[in-house]
Design a protein around this nucleic acid. Structure first.
Length: 399
DNA sequence: AATCCACAGGAAGTGCTGGGCG
DNA sequence: CGCCCAGCACTTCCTGTGGATT
């Protein structure tokens, strides 16, 4: 296909999409089905900001894709339309900003003060934040999304600071909204932070398959040309996502991917076959991307596990993997890292879901981790493609 | 009941990059 | 310019431990 033809196709009216953007993850719809309760509750808690008094801090729990972020952004948007510039709203995702420094820097930037991404002492950023905020003389509502990432990585120092900041302010007030999908994470918090942050709590239950269908239908009406979906598409996406803890994000993602595939294949309509294909692709893409972006030694450890499993080894332990890893690095003439580091790398692989590692005690034979691959081998091979190739070439050279 | 394996995983530090600030 | 900072990948040194075996 020539470039001309390609561009031509994109310029042509789509047979399927009316407005593809409406299915993108960061789109917040004008109406949130099955969440009116939470919207109302959150609005009630935050409404005092309009009258110039500080709203209570809020803690929001719920699994991935239960609408926490959407509801929060929705309420914030409505509120800021109403409040004009009487209230400052700031949203920080703590997955991307997972250190005290970065969170503070984001917040300070939202107050209109320039902060370099590195170079300053964290305590300096604290000072600048307090100054900048107090100068504004406003209520500030701070949303810390995926707050568990921040706490797990950097502790609760920032939270302690933010929950007590009002004592240092004279003309401004700050309230905090913490969002997490890890229900047990409050265990890591200082008792004072915990009680302060939990002044109000909101729980988001998982969506049922029926509810997911409603959500998809509403979105589909905005996104697709009439009749572009066959009848089974929406129930199918809903059913798959319902099994994954009622994850609405996954449901929407599936629908989008399925429609993209249908469009790419120049199909008349989106069918259940497209959904099945989408499901496979989503699963694969996540792993492949994760693997490709891994640091060198993490990849080497994964290769070691992969090769061992391929050789038929079972019940892999840290020590066995480390030896295989040493073999590989030696063959490639690389400097190996220590076993201590490998232990952490295995945990990282476990966290990203590529590998399954659990600590077991083998009695006399020590205490270790038993590791196995928890992703299908094809995705791993695809993710490691270039590195395995390199390995193969070296193998031939060394013979 | 005591032992002891094969690590787990915490704490502190190093060397490096990419930046402040005065 | 010299000295400071954060963040990362990693090292060094370390104490802790579940349970089969002695």
């Amino acid at each position: 296909m020539s470039l001309e033809e390609l561009f031509e196709r994109f310029t042509l009216q789509s047979r399927i999409f009316k407005d593809r953007d409406k299915l993108l993850p960061d789109y917040v719809p004008g109406d949130l089905p099955h969440r009116s309760n939470q919207v109302l509750q959150l609005a009630k808690i935050l409404a005092p900001a309009l009258a110039g008094s500080r709203p209570s801090n809020v803690f929001i729990y719920g699994l991935t894709g239960t609408g926490k972020t959407a509801v929060t952004k929705y309420v914030l948007r409505k509120l800021s339309e109403r409040a004009q510039d009487k209230v400052i709203f700031s949203y920080v995702n703590c997955r991307q900003n997972d250190t005290s420094y970065r969170v503070l820097a984001e917040l300070t930037r939202d107050l209109g003060t320039r902060i370099p991404f590195t170079g300053l002492a964290t305590s300096e950023v604290y000072k600048r934040f307090v100054n900048a905020l107090d100068r504004r003389g406003r209520i500030m509502v701070v949303v810390l999304d995926e707050i568990d990432h921040l706490v797990k990585k950097s502790g609760d120092d920032v939270l302690y600071f933010l929950t007590r900041i009002n004592e240092q302010l004279t003309s401004s007030r700050l309230s905090l909204i913490g969002i997490t999908n890890d229900l047990k994470f409050t265990e890591f918090l200082d008792a004072r932070v915990k009680s302060s942050l939990g002044e109000e709590e909101l729980v988001f239950p998982p969506y049922t398959a029926r509810e997911l269908e409603d959500i998809l239908r509403q979105r589909a009406a905005e996104t697709f040309v009439e009749g572009a979906l066959t009848a089974e598409v929406i129930p199918m996406c809903a059913a798959i996502a319902a099994k994954q803890n009622g994850d609405a994000r996954l449901a929407l993602d599936l629908l989008l991917k399925a429609a993209d595939i249908a469009e790419r294949d120049e199909a008349e309509k989106v069918t259940s076959e497209h959904v099945r294909q989408a499901q496979r692709e989503i699963e694969k893409n996540v792993t492949v991307d994760v693997i490709k972006s891994m640091p060198l030694h993490v990849k080497m450890v994964l290769i070691a596990i992969y090769l061992l499993e391929k050789e038929g080894a079972r019940n892999l332990t840290t020590g066995v993997i480390y030896n295989k890893y040493l073999e590989i690095t030696k063959m490639l003439g690389m400097d190996p890292v220590t076993q201590r580091r490998i232990s952490d790398i295995i945990n990282e692989l476990d966290m990203s879901g590529i590998v399954n590692a659990r600590v077991v005690s083998l009695g006399r034979y020590g205490r270790t981790k038993v590791i196995r691959l928890s992703t299908n081998v094809k995705s791993i091979e695809e993710g490691l493609q270039e590195d395995l190739f390199m390995l193969g070439v070296t193998e031939m050279v060394t013979r």
